[in-house]
């Protein structure tokens, strides 16, 4: 027997339930905290983004059509899968400068966050839906429904917990999404994609791209088939204005969460779900 040769993982992107390379053939270098090259990551192009939006769009009605309880089960399943692969996550986090304890805490918090939103899937409707008093003989009630396809920028500084905190509430509410992973630390997002892929999450519900925000930001904001845009790192005021303007083309919901500490109390609440919900009010005639 020859000596075992370590096989390194090729980090690709996650689009439509598959792991394609970028159509552009481009890549960028990813370094560890000691400035050593640890991998090449795909440098997503606008066409990759377009393909991802198409996948998210076609996955939307199926995912939004699942009952809330089932979506909760699937979010819980993501947490289970993450638990079973925690060593890999911790290894990737320590490579980029987390201490062993910090890495463990980050994985723990990520799993907890998934469980938190898994629990909310069949409850936010009850809490935020309402029966409204009206003066006529109507039964008037308001229900939440998913906004649609959400494009999001995961925070650069919190590659795992930040990503999970962005994705979980979006999909808990029945939306599908395209997320650009942390630009300097993209590797852990692809491992998270592998977890999603083995967690009964239908292909296309979550799509993860790796690449440069400055190249993709305007396409994220301008795409007419994207219904909401979430940004988590404060852009330059020039870009910020540009994003707002482009998003207005199809009246996208702009959700801005400039959170620096994803462990903080305000980084987790059910309003992250309702940020990506539309309210439908029904007037139902009732008898005398």
């Amino acid at each position: 027997m020859s000596e075992h040769l370590e096989i390194l993982k090729t980090y690709k992107m996650y689009i439509g339930g598959a792991f394609p390379r970028t159509e552009s053939g481009r890549f960028y270098k990813v370094f560890n905290n000691e400035d050593e090259l640890i991998a090449n990551a795909c440098l997503a192009s606008r066409k990759d983004f377009r393909n991802a939006v198409e996948s998210a769009r076609s996955a939307f009605s199926g995912w939004n059509g699942r009952n809330a309880y089932n979506r909760g089960q699937i979010l819980y399943r993501i947490a289970e899968m993450m638990e079973s692969r925690r060593n890999e996550f911790e290894k990737e986090l320590t490579a980029i400068g987390f201490t062993t304890n910090e890495a463990r805490a980050d994985v723990n918090a990520s799993i907890d966050r998934l469980i938190y939103y898994a629990g909310w899937t069949d409850k936010y409707q009850q809490v935020f839906g309402s029966v409204n008093p009206v003066a006529s003989s109507h039964f008037n009630f308001s229900l939440m429904d998913a906004t649609g396809v959400v494009a999001a920028f995961a925070p650069d500084a919190s590659p795992l917990l930040g990503l999970v905190s962005v994705v979980a509430p979006i999909i808990a509410g029945g939306n599908t999404c395209v997320v650009l992973a942390s630009e300097p630390y993209p590797l852990v997002s692809i491992t998270f994609a592998e977890v999603l892929n083995s967690s009964d999450v239908p292909g296309g519900v979550v799509n993860i791209l790796t690449g440069k925000k400055e190249e993709l930001a305007e396409h994220f904001a301008g795409h007419m088939d994207v219904n909401a845009l979430m940004i988590t790192d404060k852009p330059s005021s020039e870009l910020h204005k540009k994003l707002d303007e482009l998003a207005s083309e199809n009246v996208k919901r702009m959700v801005k969460k400039f959170i620096t500490d994803w462990y903080a109390k305000d980084a987790q609440d059910p309003y992250f779900i309702t940020d990506f919900q539309e309210t439908k009010t029904t007037w139902h005639p009732v008898g005398f």
Binding site: R50, V53, H219, G222, H223, M224, D225, L246, E249, N250
Partner: peptide, 9 residues
Amino acid sequence: TGLYQSGDY
């Protein structure tokens, strides 16, 4: 327009 389009319109 330079913007990717949606079937909605």
